[in-house]
Computed example of a mutant assay.
Amino acid sequence: RFHTIKVLCIEGYDYDGEELFETVENGVNAMIKGINFHPDLKQILKQESSHANNLEVLEIYGCDNLINLVPSSTSFQNLTTVAVDFCYGMINILTSSTAKSLVRLKQMKIFHCKMITEIVVDDDEEGDNYAANYEIVFSELKELRLSSLESLTSFCSVNNCAFKFPSLERLVVEDCPNMSIFSGGELSTPNLRKVQLKQWDDEKRWAWKDDLNTTIQYLYQQQ
Results as ranks from 00 to 15, higher is better:
F165W: 12
M90P: 11
E174H: 11
W200F: 14
F37T: 00
N129T: 15
E56A: 09
C156G: 11
S188M: 10
I32G: 02
C161G: 05
F155Q: 01
T215S: 01
I5C: 15
L58Q: 11
C176M: 04
K204T: 12
K42I: 10
K33T: 12
N53L: 07
N26E: 12
E174M: 05
L219W: 02
K100Q: 08
P39G: 11
E140W: 01
I5S: 15
N92S: 12
Y130P: 09
E11L: 06
N213H: 09
V28S: 15
Q199T: 15
L146P: 04
D202W: 04
L58V: 00
L212C: 06
D122Y: 04
Y130Q: 13
G89I: 12
L79M: 07
G184R: 05
I116P: 08
W208L: 01
N178H: 13
T81L: 15
K209T: 11
G184K: 03
I32A: 11
G12H: 07
Y218A: 00
D123Q: 13
W206T: 06
I5D: 15
H112D: 08
L212S: 05
L212I: 00
N178I: 07
G184T: 07
P166K: 02
P166G: 01
T81E: 08
G185I: 09
K33A: 02
L146E: 08
M115E: 15
E59D: 02
S157E: 13
F76R: 03
L149C: 05
V70N: 09
T80V: 08
S75H: 10
Q107W: 12
R104P: 02
S147Q: 09
Y15L: 02
L212N: 06
T117S: 09
F155I: 05
P166S: 00
V158E: 03
T95G: 13
N53K: 14
